[in-house]
Design a protein around this nucleic acid. Structure first.
Lengths: 342, 342
DNA sequence: TTGTAAGCGTTATCAT
DNA sequence: ATGATAACGCTTACAA
């Protein structure tokens, strides 16, 4: 009933436990022949290494902690999938928690992961997070952190973001190319850098085209389905109605389209729409939604690569990179003004 | 630089390490006053419990292992989200791996989780899995397992499934109520129980209504987007064209709708469609897709509840339950023949 | 190439 | 209510 240990194996073979340990860890110092004998009897005796003991001894868990706002969201589950995919090949386990965008929960999770001695942390911070003491914990103990998407600017760490600025610039320029003159923007909370950047890209495009920036055409909210509807409502009650909207996510793009349909306006005939993130639904709704593609899976793999590298290096880096993943404009029906072309 | 231990705290307060340990674990045998003193100095000294040591000592990791085919799929990420949600409140961490529907990977993952001493395992088996030796490992060591959705019938464990039969029955009956006479079925691979059940529900409904079961109206494939298109093509090249299709998932329901649109048939006017799973896109495509709701998040919570109960009980159950989660028919536009009603 | 022995930090058992 | 002590299974200097 009780587990076989390396001592049991050692006793059986009349050798020492350390030799067994070395052999089982493929230490090249052990002769081929004894190593083979040891592995054979280990198998016979049904030995399974006690990684709890090993972890305790070596102070390494081979575990990467992940914190995301919500697992069940396409972008985040893509990233997680990418992290797991690479981590697995490198012998790391992955433990996941969701903050539900609550600072309190994020804080608790961070402490738990810290206590559980994860070797590294990959996270996207929650909407409420503006203090980073819970992350400084890790920094102090030299436990590597990699941020993705929603980053904490003041913490020194590798960061992986998508090119929000460039994507938004392209999206807005595309609307301009399609003939839009009064382009509105439905954006996210500005305490998050990603939404600052998306706003900036939008502004830049307007500026380049010599279009006026109009305060009444810019609305910020939490980008839920409902927020999109309310924003659209506001935009079309105005005097200065937009002829195009660049939405900071696909969810609001969708609810905007639905709202417009309800008040008798057609997309793209009356109003052009571009979203952001390329949610699975965007391709299949009517009209299909033009959007900016977010490379979730690759971001996850890259994040895993960076953190594992740091874990294995054990070198305290002075220099941290911010990696910007390329975005891609996907033009679909919601933003094609010129139907004649084809 | 080095970590504070309970011995350091003990030394500072001139008490024993065991008292410190007890106080920190809220053992009621320790007097309120000393307990308070201990916690205070622990905080001051920046003590963080070494859970690696504790795990090692107690042989518990407070960790639940999860294996799913793919994290980045709406249903699975919902279940994972539900598991994490409950596990977190009960003090359990959750580690996730994806099998990619490969038996080899599933096998390796199981061994790794086993070696890492997870306290319990929640999983949905891959498409290739027909042998269960890797799971018997857990059973032998009395490590609880909970299956969900894709279950291994021969392993004794709690199982959580959705009411595939009932859902399909309702879906098909609904089509019949809407006046359909020649109902086709696009189903999944029959080595998986869930698709057997969905087929059975479809048959049952036809039988009850006295409708003939027609082989040429039933097609099985892997339920991808493309499979749906091919299946629809086949169905409408036939002599005996269907006037309704019950699809075993929403993906094929969608591609069927798109195909029909392309060949000039209208949904729901010419053909009625019902899908299965309530994917996020189903509500927002045009026409919106009637479907059977899959309670992913609740399944996850339930799975977590069951496994944690078993972990804490430490009692070897002789009796295992198979819990069938209720399904719900959501009627949307793709299956509403009678438009006059409103 | 192999063996000896210490020690990781905690909890549990037995005393007091 | 508290203390002393052993033990968990492994890794790793150091010794041989």
């Amino acid at each position: 009933m009780s587990e076989t240990t390396i001592h049991d194996i050692a006793k059986k073979l009349n050798i020492s436990a350390s030799t067994v340990s070395r052999a089982l860890n493929d230490n090249p110092i052990i002769s081929k022949s004894t190593s083979k004998r040891i592995k054979k009897t280990a198998l016979e005796m049904g030995y399974r290494p006690n990684s709890l003991a090993a972890n305790f001894r070596t102070k390494r868990t081979n575990t990467i902690g992940i914190i995301v706002p919500l697992i069940n969201r396409h972008f985040f589950s893509s990233v997680i999938s990418g992290i797991e995919d690479l981590a697995y090949t490198q012998g790391f386990a992955v433990t996941i928690s969701q903050s539900n965008d609550s600072f309190e929960k994020e804080n608790k999770i961070a402490h738990t992961l810290f206590a559980n001695r994860v070797d590294g942390l990959i996270l996207s911070i929650g909407m409420e997070t503006i203090k980073y003491d819970h992350l400084k914990l890790f920094a102090e103990r030299k436990i590597p952190i990699v941020f993705f998407d929603r980053i904490a600017e003041t913490i020194e760490a590798h960061k992986i973001v998508v090119d929000d600025f460039g994507g938004s610039l392209r999206a807005t320029e595309h609307l301009i190319e399609q003939g839009a003159k009064r382009i509105a923007h439905i954006g996210g909370p500005l305490n998050l850098k990603i939404y600052q950047n998306r706003l900036a890209g939008y502004f830049k495009a307007l500026e380049r085209a010599g279009l006026e920036i109009c305060d009444s055409l810019v609305i910020h909210n939490s980008l839920t389905r409902k927020d999109g509807t309310i924003a659209a409502q506001k935009l079309f009650q105005n005097e200065n109605k937009p002829d195009a909207i660049f939405c900071a996510n696909d969810t609001t793009a969708l609810s905007t389209i639905i709202y417009l349909k309800n008040i008798g306006l057609k997309v793209p005939d009356d109003v052009l729409i571009v979203g952001f993130s390329n949610e699975p639904f965007s391709e299949v709704v009517t009209p299909s939604i033009s959007t900016i593609k977010h490379p979730g899976f690759s971001m996850g793999r890259k994040a895993a690569e960076l953190i594992i590298h740091q874990i294995n290096e054990k070198v305290t880096r002075a220099v941290f990179e911010t990696i910007t993943m390329p975005t891609e404009l996907i033009i679909r029906d919601s933003s094609k003004r010129i139907k004649i072309e084809k």
